[in-house]
Simulated assay, not measured.
Amino acid sequence: MATHLNPYLNFRENTREAMEFYQTVFGGELSIMTFGEMQMSEDPAEFEKVMHSQLETPAGLILQAADVPNVMELNPGDNVSVSVHGDDNAELTGYWDRLSDGATITAPFEIAPWGDRFGMLVDRFGINWLLNGVPD
């Protein structure tokens, strides 16, 4: 797999609806994982919320989105991140190291509960970044 750069959208309650709409616009295959399926929330009210979704089109477009948990703030305008994902951890670690300069780390680039190497940061310009690699 090559390394991809794509937008990552955040919503409060309607990620599934939004992503199904975008699928009608762009076509492609939509995958959705909920917080309940991934056992990533103890709040039953969040079990059906979307923890991660991805729309991949035949033209190569990738759009990802998730519902923000109730305990996290969501501000319109701040609800877009840039996602970088691929299978070359050395390449991704290099991006992480350079993006980290002057950044606020919100989740270290390490093995996540779902098994991938994952990290989140806000760079020195205020841009939200998500990096996702393969397990070591």
Rank of each mutant, 00 (worst) to 15 (best):
N89Q: 00
N10I: 06
V80P: 04
V84W: 01
L30F: 07
A45L: 14
D88G: 05
P58S: 15
I62C: 07
A18I: 04
A18D: 06
E73I: 08
D78V: 00
A66H: 07
D136S: 13
F35A: 01
M33D: 02
V84R: 01
E73M: 10
M51D: 07
A90W: 04
E42H: 07
E20Q: 14
E37T: 03
L131K: 10
R117M: 14
E42L: 04
S81Y: 02
G27D: 05
A59F: 11
D43P: 05
E91G: 03
G77L: 05
G77H: 00
L92D: 05
P108N: 12
P69V: 08
E48P: 02
N6C: 15
D136Y: 09
G60L: 13
S81K: 01
F47H: 15
F21L: 09
L74P: 04
S83W: 04
M38T: 09
G94W: 01
E13K: 15
S31K: 13
D43A: 11
L63D: 05
E20G: 07
D97K: 12
G94Q: 07
G115P: 10
E46M: 14
P58L: 14
D97G: 07
D78H: 02
N79V: 06
L130R: 12
I127K: 11
A45M: 13
N14Y: 03
P76G: 01
V80G: 06
F26A: 02
H85K: 00
D78P: 00
M72S: 02
I32Q: 02
L131G: 10
D97V: 05
D87H: 02
M72Y: 07
F26L: 12
D43Y: 12
